[in-house]
Design a binder for these strands. Structure first.
Lengths: 254, 254
DNA sequence: GCACAATCTCGTACGGTGTAAAGAGTTATT
DNA sequence: AATAACTCTTTACACCGTACGAGATTGTGC
């Protein structure tokens, strides 16, 4: 049940697989399945049943080979995770053309697209990439993010750090959004039911050590009900855009 | 190797354990170990060897009981994870008293404290809490965050959403900071060595689909070397503070 | 055609995991 | 003394990732 760690396998081999740079062998029998079959089967399992359900045996079975034949195609499971991450990275949409004059709308669009992507593949939020996954789709995501901030007078480092900041925020916020959906599916207990179940206990607690929280909590439903993650996402994004605007306007603007 | 999921066990039982609300049984032999012994042993293992090393058997062995005796004290592993999370939540520092006039410094302090906390216990970043961990320490963290934003003219919902935004950003940014440290410890390969190993391959790629990235990447070392996560953290935090300032000043300020 | 090397596939096996089930021992109540 | 409540333990099961080695299949060089 530990965290899946991507980027642990042989880096070069992983990159070769990710970019399709493996020259098909001359001799020996033809492979019965392709690499993408395995990766897509794994993604399907993860989408449907969560990342816990993805085992080398399950994936092998899904494509119709024996458990150990998995290792003919993929060195080990951590490489599979890298491949899965790049396979779905950033979702599937055409490369947009951005007008710098409307950079707020552009960033909002990219951030929302990423939030959608995380919600479509919530297991991505659970796989901790300990190295950057330098695959084609991941690079495309970086490119899209950067493009939304291009032409605003920022230097290279400011652009990169801004992308990092936005991406980090979206990642964190998407966790909140995906959380309630995943738990409901896996436990059959909705957020409301959960809060209702624990409410009697919460009423017995002494909140005097938390004066501010006990003033704020009940209002927003953080203590007696979940807040609205969609609204919180938009709110945080607006603050971040305001912060970027201060910097961009300080540089002369778009 | 899947993600650890906290908050799956019986909610009430988890809360009772977390708040020490289990009335000591009248009959039967005295327990040889206390709940906190188990939790602290688990935290020690996770701090030293990562969350993967935390198994019910390991924890039981660490406190000197047999594997299955673990379940006498804790219903299942997911509850242990909840208890671990609250045990370390937010780090260990006295409750500060904030001057609203210096709210930027206050928020910076809290954010930095949380970053330190994540780096001290990087496994926290890997455990996905599917429900809020409503323990005393987690509540204290929420209280501290809220206090740093108190007295600025924000309403309850704005305060809560601001805390959520900052916390989400810190969480995401701390992942970047903790990443290189963890990988170096676990693989013995530093970031530089890793980039050096894959550089020959990266040079064979066609970057024409990524015009902006290939302009930015080499400068910031995102494509040919890792950026500086500490600097990126400070940069992002400044932007977020700027964004909050816009809202706070729009309300009349502190 | 034939030997050989390369390659895919597979069966077996090992040490690990979480935890269900059932029993043995200990303590306080009746 | 009997019993209920409780802790601790042993055994067992199904799963996991994957090391190892044995066929089976294909192309190459003679």
């Amino acid at each position: 049940m530990a965290e899946d760690i991507a980027g642990r396998g042989d880096p070069i081999k992983t990159l070769q697989l990710m970019w399709g740079r493996v020259d098909t062998p001359k001799r020996g029998p033809k492979a019965r399945v392709a690499l993408t079959d395995l990766v897509q089967a794994a993604v399907r399992i993860a989408d449907a049943e969560g990342i816990d359900a993805v085992s080398t045996r399950r994936v092998a079975e899904a494509v119709g080979i024996s458990p150990m034949s998995f290792y003919t195609h993929i060195p080990d499971k951590s490489v599979l995770l890298d491949l899965m991450l790049d396979a779905v990275s950033g979702g599937d949409y055409p490369m947009p053309v951005f007008d710098p004059a409307q950079w707020r709308a552009n960033v909002t669009m990219v951030a929302s697209e990423f939030r959608k992507y995380y919600i479509a593949h919530p297991w991505v939020l659970q796989v901790s990439t300990h190295r950057p996954v330098l695959g084609p789709n991941t690079m495309k995501s970086y490119e899209v993010f950067l493009s939304a901030l291009d032409g605003l007078g920022l230097d290279e480092i400011e652009m990169d750090m801004s992308v990092t900041m936005i991406a980090n925020y979206v990642f964190g916020a998407a966790r909140d959004v995906a959380r309630s959906r995943m738990v409901k599916e896996q436990t059959g207990m909705s957020d409301d039911e959960w809060w209702y179940a624990i409410a009697p206990f919460l009423e017995t607690l002494d909140y005097s050590p938390y004066p501010v929280a006990s003033r704020i909590g009940p209002v927003v439903g953080e203590l007696y009900g979940l807040g609205d993650p969609d609204r919180a996402f938009d709110f945080g994004l607006e603050r971040i855009l305001d912060g970027l605007a201060v910097m961009i306007e300080g540089k002369g603007g778009p």
